[in-house]
């Protein structure tokens, strides 16, 4: 049984390449210290945008700003051309889905229950919900433990269940904060392939990554953040230059093509 209330309608789809969300000259200060200062980022439909940068550069804060979680002290955040402050919580829930850095749960809900929570914003039929939940669980390979309590899962399994919940929400903008942090090699690839698939279907995907190799391989566009500012923004092949990365990370970095595929490989300089 659902509590009857007036439900907002889902937004009209944005054509591939069109702007889904944007931050314009955004400034955010937490505890008096500016975490973002004059940051502008555009998120486009059909595109995977990777946010990279050293710890404390403001990646998660920028994601929070795009998600309309954090108020900005200067600049503006727009979604579908409208300021995000003009949307109600249920309206936002139809426009963006957010994967937090760590997934917690207060009570021992089963995996399937958790994924089904992603359907809460929609006034869809139970059959439609069932299908979205089943699809999301299959895509993240968690169907096998659908009936197990979330609290009984390992960290990597929890991360995938949380992602399945976000996918089941079927929002046109996905904001993922380090979705690969707890995952093994195979599932890291799986998650970023999923991001590409969603982008291919017309959604906009913003993903915070620490693995620059993954970002180079899967992102259409990369924004490098450093000390609360955008140090570079563009296709991986342009942005990932040795001088820029070495400066931003304060660590000598080598960038070279894969001998067989020519894909960009990025590794710290080591003298072992």
């Amino acid at each position: 049984m659902r509590f009857p209330r007036t439900r907002p309608a889902p937004p009209a789809p944005v054509a591939p390449g069109g702007t889904v969300a944007e931050a314009a000259s955004v400034r955010v200060a937490l505890g008096g210290r500016p975490v973002l200062d004059g940051v502008s980022v555009t998120v486009r439909a059909g595109e995977v945008l990777a946010l990279v940068g050293p710890n404390g550069a403001g990646k998660s804060t920028l994601l929070g700003v795009l998600a309309a979680d954090l108020p900005v002290s200067a600049g503006e955040v727009r979604m579908h051309g409208r300021p995000v402050t003009g949307f109600s919580a249920p309206e936002l829930a139809l426009r963006r889905a957010v994967l937090p850095q760590s997934a917690v749960l207060s009570f021992p809900f089963t995996v399937e229950d958790v994924v089904r929570m992603g359907r809460a914003p929609h006034a869809s039929s139970p059959a439609e919900d069932d299908r979205a939940v089943a699809d999301a669980m299959a895509a993240t390979e968690v169907t096998a433990f659908a009936a197990r309590p979330f609290s009984a899962l390992s960290g990597g399994e929890r991360a995938r269940v949380a992602l399945a919940r976000v996918l089941a929400q079927r929002a046109p903008l996905l904001l993922l904060d380090e979705p690969t942090a707890a995952l093994d090699l195979r599932h890291q690839e799986l998650v970023l392939r999923l991001c590409r698939e969603r982008a291919g279907a017309g959604d906009a995907v913003v993903v915070v990554l620490h693995d620059l190799g993954l970002a180079a391989a899967y992102a259409h566009r990369v924004a490098v953040l450093a000390a609360g500012r955008v140090a570079a923004d563009g296709p991986p092949a342009e942005v990932f230059a040795e001088t820029l990365l070495s400066r931003v990370y304060d660590q000598p970095v080598e960038v070279f093509p894969h001998p067989r595929t020519d894909a960009l490989l990025i590794t710290p300089q080591r003298n072992l």
Partner: peptide
């Protein structure tokens, strides 16, 4: 139903449309 969503934490509940 909104209490179920709150089990995910405040921010995720808000992301799912709950006026926490």
């Amino acid at each position: 139903r909104r209490l179920d969503l709150l089990a995910l934490g405040e921010r995720p509940a808000r992301h799912l449309g709950v006026d926490v």
